[in-house]
């Protein structure tokens, strides 16, 4: 049985978990087993409707104390749940919480793990998972050699697939260990689209000359409904916050569309974006290496091109 961990925040199921369900359901079908989910805590979503992503059964430990993420507690509860359900494969989203607990759960279950998988495993001869390595510069096909397998999937690599179906609900009772961390404050940037979940990203580099010029990036992002990002020199100079830094040592993104403005395209930056489906580069230097990695390009001054592009997109959407 494939057991999918369903991650929530603020009592809402995360989009990355819906993708994990779609992935887990496809994998279950491939293996000829059932796709079941495990949810910790309570959410406001309609759980029976998770069937439309391919989930057949949902196990829920509906204890409100689990609405706060605690890596140690979640590891223990998930391990117990996986044992009780007799799971042969566990699927996580490779999101912030998935990164924190999937490897620990794998250790507890004596399971091999591949984090950041890009596609369904090849199960024709063994169990081989493809993942990105060298920060986006290459892929590795990795065999998981243990009876139980754990996979966490890269966000935006598989997509959310809708189908017909209902999901059965089953309450699961597991003793919850004492919390190991206490959250004192939470700070969320309102109205901003989280970069790793974004389908569209508009990113700015040093070519924009200073933080005061970011309005044209934000305007374009706004008409597209895109997240904003930046290159490393920009975040290092504190023009933009660190969490916007895309690249080998920052965030790696895989949106549908990545628009790079005034970014030359150093190898470290390309590593963070080369899983994007479509890349657009706008740069006044025709020799910028980024053009070699782009699908579409405009050689021109960002300060003229961007406002025109924003207006053209707005017009096309009207």
């Amino acid at each position: 049985m494939v057991l999918i961990y369903i991650d929530q925040a603020d009592q809402q199921i995360k989009k990355s978990s819906l993708e994990a369900i779609s992935y887990g359901a496809a994998l279950a079908k491939q293996l000829g087993v059932t796709a079941e989910g495990i949810l910790l805590g309570t959410v406001t979503d309609d759980l029976a409707s998770l069937g439309k992503y391919g989930l057949q059964k949902l196990h829920q430990v509906a204890d409100a104390s689990l609405n706060h993420f605690d890596a140690k507690v979640f590891t223990q509860v998930l391990t117990e749940a996986a044992k009780a359900a007799n799971a042969s494969v566990l699927v996580f989203a490779h999101n912030l919480n998935g990164k924190a607990i999937a490897p620990a759960v794998a250790v507890k279950l004596h399971a091999g793990i591949v984090t950041g998988a890009n596609s369904l495993p090849d199960t024709s001869n063994g169990f081989t998972v493809t993942k990105t390595v060298f920060s986006g510069k290459a892929f590795a096909q990795i065999n998981i050699d243990t009876p139980i397998k754990v996979i966490s999937i890269n966000q935006n690599c598989f997509g959310v697939h809708l189908q017909e179906g209902a999901c059965a609900l089953e309450a699961l009772s597991i003793a919850i260990p004492a919390a190991s961390t206490k959250v004192t404050t939470t700070h969320k940037v309102e109205g901003e689209i989280p970069l790793t979940e974004a389908n569209l990203v508009v990113s700015g580099g040093r070519g924009l000359k200073g933080p005061e010029n970011w309005g044209i990036i934000e305007d374009l992002a706004k008409v597209l409904g895109a997240a904003t990002a930046c290159s490393r020199p920009v975040s290092d100079s504190d023009w933009r916050p660190h969490h916007e830094h895309v690249g080998q040592t920052g965030v790696q993104v895989a949106p549908n569309l990545y628009i790079a403005v005034g970014i030359s395209g150093a190898i470290q930056h390309l590593a963070g974006v080369n899983r994007s489906k479509t890349i657009v580069v706008i740069n006044k230097d025709p020799e910028a290496p980024f053009f070699k990695a782009a699908d579409y390009g405009i050689v021109g001054d960002a300060f003229e091109v961007l406002p025109a592009l924003t207006a053209a997109i707005q017009k096309s959407k009207a």
């Binding site: 794998a106 399971a111 091999g112 493809t130 590795a140 096909q141 990795i142 065999n143 243990t146 070699k292």
Partner: peptide
């Protein structure tokens, strides 16, 4: 628990 079977480079644009 795991073993690397092979590596691939991303297809060129």
């Amino acid at each position: 628990t795991t073993s690397i079977k092979t590596y691939d480079l991303p297809p060129a644009k």
